[in-house]
Design a protein around this nucleic acid. Sequence first.
DNA 1: TATATTTAGTGATTTTTTTCACTTAAAGCT
DNA 2: AGCTTTAAGTGAAAAAAATCACTAAATATA
Lengths: 205, 205
Amino acid sequence: MKLSNKTVERVCRVFGYLKVLEDKGIAFVSSLDLAKAIGATESTVRKDISILELTGFSRKGYDVMLLKKELGVKLQLNKKRKACIVGLGRLGTALLDYEKFQEDGFEIVAGFDASINKIERINTVIDVFAVDDLENVVAQRKIELGIIAVPAQAAQGIAYKLVKSGVKGVLNFSPVKLIVPKNVMYLDMDFTSALRSIAARMAVC
Amino acid sequence: MKLSNKTVERVCRVFGYLKVLEDKGIAFVSSLDLAKAIGATESTVRKDISILELTGFSRKGYDVMLLKKELGVKLQLNKKRKACIVGLGRLGTALLDYEKFQEDGFEIVAGFDASINKIERINTVIDVFAVDDLENVVAQRKIELGIIAVPAQAAQGIAYKLVKSGVKGVLNFSPVKLIVPKNVMYLDMDFTSALRSIAARMAVC
DNA sequence: TATATTTAGTGATTTTTTTCACTTAAAGCT
DNA sequence: AGCTTTAAGTGAAAAAAATCACTAAATATA
């Protein structure tokens, strides 16, 4: 079972949509419906699911609850994951209390910032620390995921500290590409770059 | 000159890195340096640049200022673009004042929210409006880009209004895939899905 | 029960994207 | 000037991803 990143991303989206369907009480869903919901084609969805060695039912589609459960098992999407946010600027603090993360099994168990003043002013239920404590806290609390929301010039240093302290996944909101070991999963979320590529496509298309 | 989205995304990243280099006063950069900075290989970078019909210099690399200028022209990255943010929750308000956008030629000229109370409480220099005014304001101010930061169930409706009012690009932070006309450029920034795929890859790899 | 219909499953094919490997140009060095 | 080195440019090859087109299974229908 060799999963490409693209397949992983798509089935994660499928998983999210299955949650919605489950809440609505819908029992079966076709590959076409899934495809529309995640912005793919039906054959791609079917192939993705078959790569994961999961199956549906002829003439009925996929059993929503079953597929969700099976995807959850295969990709461990039901496992609770401890995460932390580094950089408590506007974005960082917004993320601290982003309820969707918690709903989704991501437990934000710590926030870090370089400025002590800022830490004192932040109003949240989540424990916040000075960045100097990062390595200790991440190691002690066995935090698996780091969310980087610091300015560009600080990002690589934070990534390094996170990895050193045992983090196995990094979500990077800073606009620079970070270097992390190959066994650490890494994804960029660069707003500026995103807007820029939309604008570029507006210009070109 | 047929540009794939991937090429556009990469050259946008290159553009960002060129800005950094220019600020540092670096005159030339090699494809290898660019590649490292954006997380690609040197041959990919060279191909991307050549697809844009731009060139460098043998044994010297690319002229930082020149390439930045040329990319700016080709992709109209220097053009000021008016944008608005719809949904002024924590994320939306964080985005409202995200200085990086302004630096990058994106002018956030309006914010919208469904809740009148929230609008009154928001502390920003940017004009904020009720969502009912969206179509008028977007059309009047000739806003080209819409940034959607509303809850999932409201997102498609907002996308529709934005497009109807003349927006030509949409950046979507909600966790659902939106349907927009093909001539409208569209990009998803779904945090939950992103975290989920990192977690999934942690499980699988 | 036979037939039609719907939808998943999948090998083959096509398309897209990336990488390789070689050529060429320019600069530096002896 | 001639040789060496460095880095871009590029057609060809390889790899990856997506799509197609068909098969098979299950249900509904006549």
